[in-house]
Nucleic acid binder design. Structure first.
Lengths: 242, 242
DNA sequence: CGCGATTTTGAGCCATGTCAATCGGAGTGG
DNA sequence: CCACTCCGATTGACATGGCTCAAAATCGCG
């Protein structure tokens, strides 16, 4: 049941369904409205890994990730990076025409499919728009809330807790869209990504992962995370597990 | 020109004008609409220091700080705290009916006057509402953007840079509402507040302040901050000074 | 097979945390 | 006016978590 071969890939044919599931888990989107959305975003945009997603258009952009991973990141002048959040299928990618360009960039981590929702909304009949817009706003609000959690990680937690807590957040989010199989999920991040997100050095992320593995709490290897001891992890992170 | 007696107090009779100035500097609020707002908030609510401001009403709350300081904070189970942001006159205090109660609390640091804008908006004639709402939304957006800066502080900066950068942000915000006199401003925060915001221990905040003072960069004493060397501070923090 | 990217490991250092004590000012009651 | 208390600021001694530098091992890929 937990062979590596059993792990769901992070790209699959039913990605849109997963993204919709993600959206619905955060909002009151009805089945009919989901069906609308399904049709509205039939031709998603594609971005290659490392490509920047935010366009510099003057109008606000509203996109919706259908498959793949992206992140919000700022690159500092000394080339250090801070990753603010990871964006998964079903997440909303909102970019205001930044008053300053440098607040954060949105960058694809894997290949990403996303739908231009602003455009899709325009093509919808008026009464259909509001609920979809609400669903997007709700998804965005959840994403904002997660940033508070991330600030707590950065400001208050030790390295092992930071790493474990972030991985559990990702576990929870991926589970909601059906991308967890047998307490195991794909993690298309390098240790550098984790370091940039968690405010740790790459070397220390590596040691911390080794430590977590040695304690048989979780195992991160081969782009794959296995939750070994949900209970002890919940204790370490103070985070309730599903 | 820089006697302690010359420093503007953080409470004064023209606080509403300052708050409106802060709001106008971030949005296209017209003079007439500002006048509307002025009248709409003539009877502000009062909160004592340490009082919680967010009410647990089921409807979203939209308040607007007229005078005093507040903060967004989360208290962890081990009684550590993370302060997410400081809220100053002219800032918006938005609380959604949190799906989880624990995302963050909004707490007065000094005595705070604030206006219930949601209520005020209802009493306004329709055509007046939209611009005011937009102004509130713009203020909220600026506040969100600052949280990205704060995440960078927490994740990437050394203690001296964290402290200096935060104090410069406050300097900039206070200057915008006329609460800076001669590169000096009132700071109604204890070192514990700074520690909780910056993810440092109280002791280390104290040492860091001493270090910044020894280097004649800035001086924090008696609830009062003096910017001594704007240029070298700009160099340390990578933050442009007004 | 060779090369760049990533992971892993070791050694040593330094920034920051912890613990504990002291100090000073502001209030408060006698 | 003094003694007491409380809270915040300050300092010292010491421990340690996380960083840096450097090198090796491993992986993925052409």
């Amino acid at each position: 049941m937990s062979e590596i071969g059993q792990v769901h890939p992070f790209w699959a044919s039913d990605v849109i369904e997963r993204a919709i599931a993600g959206l619905r888990s955060n909002s009151g989107l009805s089945v009919e409205q989901a069906q609308r959305l399904r049709r509205a975003v039939e031709k998603p945009e594609h971005y290659e890994a490392r490509a920047s997603i935010s366009s510099h258009a003057l109008t606000p952009q509203l996109k919706w990730i259908v498959s793949g991973w992206a992140c919000e990141v700022r690159v500092l002048s000394d080339s250090r990076r801070q990753i603010f959040s990871f964006l998964l299928p079903g997440d909303v990618l909102l970019s205001r025409p930044a008053r300053q360009q440098h607040i954060c960039a949105q960058v694809a981590i894997t290949r990403v499919e996303c739908a231009d929702v602003a455009e899709a909304l325009e093509n919808l009949p008026e009464p259909e728009r509001a609920p979809l817009w609400d669903a997007m706003a709700a998804a965005q609000a959840v994403s904002q809330d997660r940033k508070y959690d991330h600030m707590v990680r950065l400001g208050q937690y030790s390295a092992p807790r930071r790493v474990a807590d972030l991985l559990l957040e990702l576990h929870e989010r991926l589970a909601a869209i059906g991308l967890v199989a047998g307490e195991r999920f794909r993690l298309p991040l390098t240790q550098e990504h984790l370091a940039d997100a968690l405010g740790l050095s790459i070397v220390h992320v590596n040691r911390t992962l080794r430590e977590l593995r040695a304690q048989r709490l979780l195992d991160v290897r081969f782009g794959c995370v296995t939750i070994l001891e949900p209970d002890r992890l919940a204790e370490l992170t103070g985070r309730a597990l599903a």
